[in-house]
């Protein structure tokens, strides 16, 4: 008999996870701050204590709210629970990963993340897709696979949680940059340069934070970025395009229709890299553009005029 799977967060991704669990024959319990609209087969609650009965818990809240959600959840869980987050963010100037926040603010230790080219729609409609579970604990992967895996979803596994989380966060940022460049009329060749050099930049920072370089070339990195460029309806691309049209970050986020983690990551990543002496020209240009320090065409000019070196 399948066990009840808990989902913390009633946003689009949380609800899609609930549907996917139910479609796979499981039972899902979804917590949200406000009473969620009913969802077929999913038990909805606003009582966090009810989540203690679920051994596997997905945390599906944006990184800016993770600390708060973790504090609330932390009152009710213990070492038996397995936590898996789906956030694409990192927290603060130290680029703290969400799994670290969960470990620090809850007693759970068996923590992991679900990343890669999985979108809410993939889960909701059951269209073929794949993703990656990052966790050093084999039972976390097994539990996620049992809850979500099936004929339409291939789930791979990696021990490199940090690399997976950082890849996922930086891909969000790169997707934003690509939407931005596309809006400015940048062609496929230059987009390819932007994507490739952007991933190199991301892996440079990721490795300095303890991630494995290979993870950035896998599903959580390039795999996810290819899905974004191929047009999986990623809100980050829409946000980048809105920014490219000259909208303010606030307006652009509103237009893209979702909270997008890339905006805060750009500035934090830029500061972190400066402190560590890591070169991140794409992030620098993007962060400056988001703060209005450089005009959109100025960003392209700045990047294209850099001295070309050995790859």
């Amino acid at each position: 008999m399948k066990r009840t799977v808990g989902i913390v967060g009633g946003g689009g991704f949380g609800r899609a996870l609930g549907r996917a669990v139910v479609r796979g024959g499981g039972h899902a319990r979804l917590w949200s701050r406000r009473q969620a609209s009913p969802l077929d087969g999913v038990e909805c609650t606003t009582d966090m204590a009810a989540m203690a009965g679920c051994e596997l818990l997905f945390v599906a809240v944006p990184s800016m709210h993770v600390a708060q959600a973790a504090d609330a959840l932390g009152h009710h869980i213990d070492g038996r629970h397995l936590l898996v987050h789906v956030s694409r963010g990192v927290v603060g100037e130290g680029l703290t990963t969400v799994s670290r926040v969960l470990r620090e603010r809850t007693p759970a230790r068996r923590v992991g993340c679900l990343a890669g080219p999985i979108q809410a729609r993939t889960l909701e409609d059951g269209v073929p897709g794949g993703g990656i579970v990052g966790s050093g604990f084999p039972e976390v992967y097994e539990a996620v696979h049992e809850a979500l895996g099936g004929p339409s979803l291939r789930l791979y596994q990696t021990d490199d949680v940090k690399g997976t989380e950082l890849s996922s966060a930086f891909v969000g940022l790169l997707a934003l940059a690509i939407g931005f460049a596309r809006q400015l009329g940048v062609g496929p060749g230059a987009l390819a340069v932007l994507a490739t050099r952007g991933m190199v930049e991301a892996s440079r920072v990721g490795v300095s934070l303890g991630g494995d370089e290979r993870t950035f070339s896998g599903l959580a990195g390039y795999g996810d970025l290819i899905a974004a460029i191929a047009g999986d309806g990623r809100p980050e691309i829409a946000l980048g395009e809105a920014l490219g049209r000259g909208l303010s970050p606030g307006r652009a986020a509103e237009e893209a229709g979702a909270y997008i983690e890339g905006i805060s990551i750009a500035r934090n990543l830029q500061r972190y890299a400066a402190r560590r002496g890591i070169e991140v020209p794409i992030t620098d240009a993007l962060a400056d553009a988001l703060e209005g320090k450089v005009s959109p065409p100025g960003v392209i000019e700045r990047l294209m005029s850099r001295r070309v070196r050995h790859e």
């Binding site: 051994e55 504090d71 932390g74 009152h75 213990d78 070492g79 038996r80 007693p107 230790r109 084999p138």
Partner: peptide, 22 residues
């Protein structure tokens, strides 16, 4: 736990309620 609540450390080595060697 971080909130000061006493918890059972045995939970960390249990799966589905049973302590296991892994």
């Amino acid at each position: 736990a971080p909130d000061g609540r006493a918890i059972d450390p045995g939970g960390y080595v249990s799966l589905r309620g049973t302590p296991t060697v892994d």
